[in-house]
Design a protein around this nucleic acid. Structure first.
Lengths: 229, 229
DNA sequence: GCCTGTGGGTATACGGCGTACACTTGTCAA
DNA sequence: TTGACAAGTGTACGCCGTATACCCACAGGC
């Protein structure tokens, strides 16, 4: 009896299950190819059924962003402002790396969701608790920009995904047209002659992100100290 | 005779005319609502006619980006690296403000076009001519990120577009939920009590952009000096 | 003058999309 | 038993990008 009921009444749809399916599909298919029809199919349901639980596709995208932002660790307690900020931003970055579509969706959405606003608010709190004036905190938030959410759009595709010799050939080919990019050949590809030994540190995304992050945080620290004096 | 010919043989389609129309439509309609059909209609032609001159919509978007990047002033000659960089980036920003859709398209495109690559290459040249090592230039380019092309995505919509009292009401309403954002009310809205006088500097996009830009450039300058020592 | 490519514009059509609207059906309170 | 209500369905509309086949003016060779 119970089994029969279980068989015929499948698990009912709800907002969480829809978001979960959507996030999963976006994770492995990319957000461009995400469609209401595919989500519905994934859930074994007709497309219009989704609209009983989400208003429309935009609202669903907002919900997906909230799922990702919800994965960011809470701020650590008791640290100074800089490490608190740094750690949390790196946690945000980890969340966004798990869901590579999220940064694009975040940018394209006009108004931030309450979840995102709450995150930003808490980050502002970290600045203020660290001794920033409201004014400086304001500028700091603008200066951090998307970095505070763990991403900064890269303008080049990383060449690290292609075989080294292919990338090398590509670089060599455009050496005369783009002389300065060509100079990056050794450091960006990863075969890098250093004191006679070829070391393999290429374009390390994590390093570059933290490099820029620390540059920003250090600059802000300096301004904060100047302000307090 | 000549007039008759002129009448019946309209100005022929070509890539430039298509790009011009597309940029115009995107400028006033937004890039989301830009469609091949609308461009064709604008040009008094059937949609498929466009495909004789552009491969597909993606390639057309690339072309549109190139138009915008082409509007960026060439680097000034004879200045030090920092002002050269600064001025050119501000010129890029002006171009992107004329075509607000361009930054979004730039981000969403995977591989940069040759035009964009050439721009980046010339910016690298500015760093190198300024005495940066190839390594530091490499990190600097990553750190600048999209800022080098004149934009840094804002995470909040600017409240400056809505009437001050409405914004004020909005802020007041969320004061208990977002205490730190609420503290921005005076400085971000634009009515700002300073020494008894209410001054009207709100969220100044230009100021915020240059604030962050200079923070970055100053940080890089320090690293450059440390490196040379 | 005629033939024949060929390049540019056209007509039609396909499969996909988001979603409005009208419907059935299963559940439970009264 | 009824009847309201929530959840899921079916159909349809108007968009989208673009494949494919077509037409036709015109240039170059004969």
């Amino acid at each position: 009896m119970a089994a029969k009921i279980e068989q015929k009444t499948r698990e009912p749809l709800n907002r969480e299950r829809i978001l979960e399916a959507a996030v999963g599909l976006a994770d492995d298919g990319g957000v461009e190819s995400l469609s209401m029809r595919k989500i519905a199919h994934e859930l074994g349901v007709v497309p219009m059924a989704l609209y009983k639980h989400v208003a429309n596709k935009d609202e669903l995208l907002d919900g997906m962003v909230d799922v990702v932002v919800g994965e960011i660790d809470p701020p650590i307690e008791g640290g100074d402002w800089k490490t608190t900020m740094r750690e949390r931003i790196l946690s945000a970055r980890r969340a966004l790396l798990r869901h590579p579509w999220a940064s694009r969706v975040l940018e394209s959405r006009g108004e931030p969701t309450p979840t995102v606003i709450a995150y930003l608010d808490s980050m502002m709190g970290v600045f203020l608790a660290g001794g920033f004036s409201v004014d400086l905190m304001h500028h700091a938030m603008h200066a951090m920009g998307s970095r505070i959410l763990g991403f900064s759009q890269e303008l080049f595709d990383d060449t690290s995904s292609m075989p080294a010799e292919e990338a090398e050939a590509m670089f060599a080919q455009m050496a005369d047209v783009y002389p300065n990019i060509a100079k990056l050949l050794p450091v960006a590809i990863g075969t890098h002659d250093e004191g006679g030994a070829v070391v393999g540190t290429g374009c390390d995304d994590r390093f570059e992100f933290e490099f820029a992050l620390d540059l920003m945080l250090d600059g802000l620290e300096r301004l904060r100290e100047k302000e307090r004096a």
